[in-house]
Every structure is written in C-alpha cells, then in structure tokens.
C-alpha cells in the first residue's frame, strides 16, 4: 500500500526545546490514524509540519511524496485541514465561506460542501459568527472536505464541542472519508471517539514517537516500551487511550 505520510528522523526545535525529536513515521493511504499524546507532546507541531506551516529542523517529511514546506501549493491541494481553534471569517455568511473555498481551490466540490451543511440544518445565508461552536466546526469541516482532499488532518476538532455535536461531527467525518477513500489523521483527547474510528495509531510522548502502526501492533509496541520506561513517563492519557483501544480489538488483547 502507498504511503500517505512518511517521516524519517524528523525533528522540530523551537529555540532549545525539541517539539519533535528524531521521529520516524509511516502512514498508509486510506487509513484512519489517531494521534495520541498528552498536551505539549508534539501533536499539533506534527500536524503543522504536515500542512507546511512549520519547517522541519532536521530530517525529512513527505506527504504523498512531496515535502510540504517546499512544495506548499501542490501539497496543500491534496490536504484538508481543520485546526484546533477552527479560524473562520466570522463576518462572512456560510455561503460566502464556501464560495471562498471554491475560489481558492481548483478541486472544489461545491455540491458536497453545500449538501452536507444543508443536511445538518445549517442555513447558508447565516453569518458564521452567529453559529454555535458545533455548527462552526461543521462549516470548517465542509471547507476542508470541499477540496476533496486525499488527506484530512484534524487537530482536536471536537475539543470545544458538546457530546452530541461530537457524535454528529465524527459520524460526518466517517461517512465522507469512507465514501471518498480518504486518509485521515486526527488528534483528540476523547478516547471513546478515537477508539470507534481509528485503524492506526501514533503515540507521541515528549516529542518522540513511541508507537506507530495498526492499532494492535502499535499497542504491543507501546506496552513493551511502557514497561521499560519509568511509570511516571507514561502519561495517563496514553494509558487510557491505548488501554481502551486494546479493549476494542477483536481478540481483546
């Protein structure tokens, strides 16, 4: 299977602090990858490197064979990105926001973007700033999906949403990504949701990737490393996510 994302010895340093340190990563096309790690572990840095908004300090990062920071335009045409703070122009209407997507992206699918918002009952003539947090997240997702991206990157997209909105958001992501054979990488702290959707997992701890691969293999790698490390280095979140994921595996391991 082709690789959607490949990183070799990838490092990113802010001053003296390593946000990512000598990371190797391989994500196959068509996978749904959960990006797991405590706050400050380096998840957002990895996602920003993938969209070319950061430049690696060392190592190589390729998205569909291209370095995002070197070939930004070509790489970004294949990537849909929803960032944690979901920045949208609050003064624009939903229709104008989608029109912006159409004008700025040559591969734009207006039908896809419009119909899914209408299905969710979001009025296109409404001002984005007057929508609820959940509705704004759906508009941001529509903007990302309307590009018909081959890779969808979601940086804690559900952090500020209530449980019902999270459910709706995730169902939408699942429907569209399955239908379009999209590769998805999503960071989230909501354990049950990650377990429900992902088939691959990447665990980042203090800027280092401690496990990466299909859920079962990654959990085994993580468990082996966690037993070697001092317990205090393993975050509660890691333990909770991977414990939950392991319970979801068919053989229960």
């Amino acid at each position: 299977m082709r690789e959607a994302i490949r990183a070799e010895h990838l490092s990113k340093r802010y001053g003296r602090l390593f946000a990512l340190d000598d990371c190797d990563l391989s994500i196959p096309e068509g996978s749904f990858t959960a990006l797991v790690g405590a706050n400050g572990a380096g998840k957002s840095t990895l996602l920003l490197l993938l969209v070319g908004l950061l430049r690696p300090t060392a190592g190589e990062l390729l998205v569909f064979g291209r370095a995002p920071h070197k070939e930004r335009t070509k790489t970004m045409a294949a990537i849909g990105f929803v960032s944690q703070d979901k920045p949208l122009y609050k003064s624009l209407s939903v229709r104008d926001t989608l029109e912006m997507g159409r004008r700025l992206n040559s591969t734009w699918d207006n039908k896809l973007a419009t119909e899914r918002l209408e299905r969710l009952g979001i009025r296109l003539d409404q001002q984005v700033g007057r929508l609820s947090g959940g509705q704004q997240a759906q508009v941001a997702l529509s903007l990302a999906l309307g590009k018909r991206p081959a890779l969808l990157l979601l940086d804690e997209p559900m952090a500020s949403l209530d449980p019902l909105s999270r459910q709706i958001f995730l169902d939408e992501v699942l429907d569209v990504t399955k239908e379009q054979q999209m590769t998805v990488m999503m960071s989230s702290h909501v354990i049950a949701e990650l377990a429900r959707v992902c088939d691959h997992v990447v665990v980042i701890r203090a800027g280092q990737i401690v496990a990466c691969g299909p859920v079962g293999a990654a959990i085994a790698a993580w468990a082996s490393q966690a037993s070697r490390d001092r317990p205090q280095r393993v975050s509660d979140l890691e333990e909770a996510v991977l414990g939950y994921l392991s319970m979801q595996l068919p053989d229960g391991k």
């Binding site: 969209v51 908004l53 335009t73 970004m76 045409a77 920045p87 997507g101 700025l104 903007l143």
Partner: peptide, 14 residues
C-alpha cells in the same frame, strides 16, 4: 489575531 491567515494558507494560497 483571529488566526484566519492560517485558514487561507491551508487553502491553495501561498
């Protein structure tokens, strides 16, 4: 301040 520049940069605008 609003961070909307990143919204535009992650479309096909350099």
């Amino acid at each position: 301040e609003a961070g909307t520049h990143r919204l535009v940069w992650t479309q096909s605008v350099t």
